[in-house]
């Protein structure tokens, strides 16, 4: 089963994504901070991580770098509330596998995940 980690500082976001993805037959883990996300990645080795760009303490861009340092094979999809071409470019250069904006279109998210799954 494909394991997906959802990282967002808002618990509500983690919750509905978990509910949705679970219903779509993914194993879903959640984390509301970058540090707990890293802990989870080391322990559970998810196949894919959804990372919120703006988070307190450590933001999503730094987390992306650290995930790729741990394992380049983990797919990372960036999620942002503020569309920003510069940030999008930067994250893609750092190895992000996708960049989607909030409000998240769940169908679009699923398509993205399905495409990534082909390569997992």
């Amino acid at each position: 089963m494909i394991r997906i980690l959802v990282v967002d500082d808002e618990q509500e976001v983690c919750d509905f994504l978990q509910e949705f993805l679970t219903k779509k037959n993914y194993e879903v883990l959640t984390a509301t901070s970058a540090s707990s996300a890293l802990q989870c990645i080391k322990e559970a080795r998810p196949h894919m991580v959804l990372v919120d760009v703006r988070m307190p303490e450590k933001d999503g861009v730094i987390l992306l770098k650290e995930i790729k340092e741990i394992d380049r094979e983990i797919s990372v999809i960036m999620v942002t509330a503020l569309r920003d071409e510069q940030v999008a470019k930067k994250t893609l250069q750092l190895g992000a596998d996708g960049y989607i904006t909030k409000p998240i279109d769940l169908d679009y998210l699923e398509t993205n995940i399905l495409v990534k799954r082909l390569f997992l």
């Binding site: 509910e19 949705f20 219903k23 509330a81 503020l82 769940l106 169908d107």
Partner: peptide
């Protein structure tokens, strides 16, 4: 915008989930 989009994201997510279920 950042502050508005976050709650919008949750509302929209829940509505989509409701539609799905």
């Amino acid at each position: 915008i950042h502050e508005i989009n976050n709650p919008l994201n949750i509302i929209s997510g829940r509505a989509q989930l409701l539609l799905f279920e």
